[in-house]
Measured scan of single mutants.
Amino acid sequence: MAAAAAAGAGPEMVRGQVFDVGPRYTNLSYIGEGAYGMVCSAYDNVNKVRVAIKKISPFEHQTYCQRTLREIKILLRFRHENIIGINDIIRAPTIEQMKDVYIVQDLMETDLYKLLKTQHLSNDHICYFLYQILRGLKYIHSANVLHRDLKPSNLLLNTTCDLKICDFGLARVADPDHDHTGFLTEYVATRWYRAPEIMLNSKGYTKSIDIWSVGCILAEMLSNRPIFPGKHYLDQLNHILGILGSPSQEDLNCIINLKARNYLLSLPHKNKVPWNRLFPNADSKALDLLDKMLTFNPHKRIEVEQALAHPYLEQYYDPSDEPIAEAPFKFDMELDDLPKEKLKELIFEETARFQPGYRS
């Protein structure tokens, strides 16, 4: 834990890192770190609560700039109880001085990944967590956004079992017609939660990839272990087919990539493993919904509104309290091709509203 900075004593240090967030945020305490930044909790002297502050230093890398800009653009436009918001952003007053960006968010005690390492969940908890994931996802999908990296560590939890989806750095506007060349190379989302079509096709992607990830998360809540822990690309596919069985001819016809289709045709026939054999203690309604989410063919996979209306979630289902976005989200430009200098300018502009004396 960093010592509390005395008023006016300059930035606090946390594990050798400068955290320049005073005077409003003090009493910093280390939480963890990701690929390009550290997260601390801090005391907000204005709202009198502890908050989470993520320090991001992305400006050396085009990919990190892209992810940072995506996350900020999306989260500043989203407003939903099951999606983490941005409360404040701290950065230098000029673009030349801006080396880091500090993002202030609600402090959540833990995440689903940490929880599943230590606790076996009751059916009631599984049901409530799944409902909140789908409630947040309904809003995301209504904005025409794909999260693309749903996994237990991106689901934040607090002691009252509130759940918030975080990390929109890989999110995209849904565009089933656009052929994202190089899709697989830039697709760094965790393999275990990846839909089979991501490994088999490169053309376009749809909201059904997020539903697949939610199915993987439900299976993990039922058993405290990942359902498809593939060691590499082909191993991942083999794990999936080992449980779902061989795809039907109709399902194979959806695979545009001939090499991928021929690979699947070359494999020995596998039978589907019954879900109640894998999860003998699970609620039968939970397994019915799991089956509809972990469907090989993305066109037959359940959609988020149908999933919310499934009998497993009937005690929570309330369409009048499951809000959607006001308007579909649009990125003005494809960020993939922009140089990091341009992305830095866009991050600077996007964060201006939090600067003292800002006038829109």
Rank of each mutant, 00 (worst) to 15 (best):
253 N>E: 09
258 L>V: 12
216 C>L: 10
80 H>P: 01
184 L>Y: 05
130 L>K: 04
331 F>N: 12
287 L>K: 02
271 N>W: 03
320 S>V: 08
83 I>W: 00
308 L>T: 05
227 I>T: 06
278 L>N: 06
177 D>N: 11
142 S>K: 07
11 P>Y: 02
72 I>G: 01
198 I>P: 01
127 C>N: 03
240 I>M: 07
269 H>Y: 10
110 T>Y: 07
178 H>E: 10
85 G>F: 12
211 I>P: 05
210 D>C: 08
351 T>C: 01
82 N>K: 10
183 F>P: 12
346 L>P: 00
236 Q>N: 02
67 R>N: 03
313 L>N: 01
177 D>Y: 13
157 L>T: 04
262 N>V: 04
56 I>V: 14
218 L>E: 09
279 F>S: 09
282 A>C: 08
88 D>C: 01
77 R>T: 06
134 L>W: 03
295 T>A: 00
71 E>K: 15
212 W>G: 11
149 D>L: 03
354 F>S: 00
209 I>D: 03
195 A>V: 11
13 M>E: 12
178 H>G: 07
335 L>T: 05
10 G>W: 14
319 P>F: 05
59 F>L: 15
211 I>Q: 05
110 T>P: 15
7 A>P: 13
149 D>W: 08
87 N>F: 05
227 I>S: 11
44 D>P: 04
193 Y>G: 10
304 V>T: 03
287 L>Y: 13
13 M>N: 12
69 L>P: 01
217 I>E: 08
150 L>A: 01
257 N>G: 12
282 A>W: 02
350 E>K: 14
61 H>Y: 14
205 Y>K: 07
232 H>W: 01
212 W>S: 07
161 C>K: 01
48 K>Y: 10
168 F>Y: 13
351 T>G: 10
193 Y>H: 12
116 L>W: 03
156 L>K: 03
44 D>T: 05
116 L>T: 01
33 E>V: 12
4 A>N: 06
314 E>Q: 08
278 L>S: 07
82 N>T: 10
238 N>K: 13
101 V>Y: 11
240 I>P: 04
198 I>S: 08
14 V>C: 09
215 G>S: 04
12 E>C: 11
24 R>K: 05
41 S>W: 11
304 V>S: 09
71 E>I: 01
153 S>W: 06
258 L>Y: 09
203 K>W: 11
52 A>P: 07
320 S>T: 13
346 L>A: 10
302 I>T: 00
239 H>V: 05
52 A>I: 12
224 N>H: 07
154 N>W: 03
281 N>K: 12
273 V>Y: 09
33 E>N: 02
143 A>S: 12
104 V>C: 03
143 A>H: 01
224 N>F: 10
142 S>M: 09
245 G>Q: 10
78 F>R: 02
76 L>I: 01
126 I>Q: 04
79 R>K: 12
56 I>P: 15
202 S>T: 12
122 S>T: 05
206 T>D: 03
353 R>C: 09
335 L>C: 00
57 S>A: 12
258 L>N: 01
337 D>P: 06
127 C>S: 15
135 R>N: 03
155 L>K: 04
105 Q>W: 15
227 I>A: 05
218 L>R: 04
310 H>N: 13
268 P>G: 03
314 E>K: 13
189 A>C: 07
117 K>N: 15
271 N>S: 00
67 R>C: 03
359 R>E: 13
337 D>E: 15
126 I>Y: 03
58 P>F: 15
44 D>L: 12
33 E>T: 02
123 N>G: 13
99 K>P: 10
332 D>V: 14
156 L>S: 12
74 I>Y: 05
272 K>W: 02
46 V>W: 12
270 K>C: 02
68 T>F: 15
193 Y>A: 05
137 L>S: 07
271 N>A: 04
61 H>V: 03
54 K>Y: 02
161 C>V: 00
108 M>N: 01
140 I>Q: 09
152 P>G: 00
323 P>L: 12
60 E>N: 13
355 Q>S: 09
170 L>S: 02
350 E>N: 07
326 E>I: 02
11 P>F: 03
185 T>E: 08
69 L>D: 00
190 T>D: 07
292 K>A: 09
282 A>P: 08
192 W>A: 04
79 R>H: 02
61 H>N: 14
104 V>Q: 10
30 Y>Q: 06
90 I>G: 02
312 Y>V: 01
324 I>K: 05
119 Q>I: 09
103 I>H: 06
211 I>W: 07
334 E>P: 10
173 V>E: 15
273 V>Q: 01
290 L>A: 05
